[in-house]
């Protein structure tokens, strides 16, 4: 199967197999007008199987959230068909509207228009807590 290399954009590599669609949803890639490819079950020496996402477009993506989903992911930023930056995402300080607070006593349970915001409270243990009720993200 051939997926063309991209000119400008992102190659999100080393995604755990099966996680590609979740990332597609979380980054809201379905809303983009540019070409987006999800490759599932690609061969990988390191991981045996992996998912890859390619986004071909001169756009700015909010990819910080990937650090929360899986910090082993590799992000390649491509410009004029060359990789200009390659890195593993760090845990973001704040994630918005990616996970939902499960605490039934939280204000977000009755006021649906509020953003679901989680704040990093323990970097070592990767603990995020709801900005409002401080419940741990599950």
């Amino acid at each position: 199967m051939n997926i063309d290399s991209i000119k400008n954009g992102y190659v999100i590599d080393h995604i755990k197999e099966g996680k590609g669609m979740q990332i597609y949803e979380d980054l809201k890639l379905g809303e983009l007008n540019c070409p987006v490819a999800i490759i599932k079950n690609a061969k990988s020496n390191k991981m045996q199987k992996k998912d890859i996402i390619k986004v071909d477009g001169n756009i700015q993506l909010n990819i910080d959230v990937l650090g929360y989903i899986d910090s082993d992911i590799t992000i390649n930023v491509v410009k004029d068909s060359k990789i200009i930056k390659k890195y593993h995402p760090e845990l973001p300080e704040k994630i918005t509207n990616i996970i939902k607070c499960k605490n039934p006593r939280c204000i977000t349970s009755i006021e649906q228009e509020l953003d679901q915001v989680f704040v990093l409270t323990d970097k070592e243990k990767r603990v995020y807590r709801c900005k409002y009720c401080e419940s741990k993200a599950k």
Partner: peptide
């Protein structure tokens, strides 16, 4: 009664908010 309601209030309020208990 809902936890975190005063946080929402403080974000929008033009006057000081005192939390007198949220759940």
């Amino acid at each position: 009664p809902k936890e975190g309601a005063p946080v929402v209030a403080a974000e929008k309020s033009i006057v000081p908010i005192i939390n007198a208990g949220d759940g």
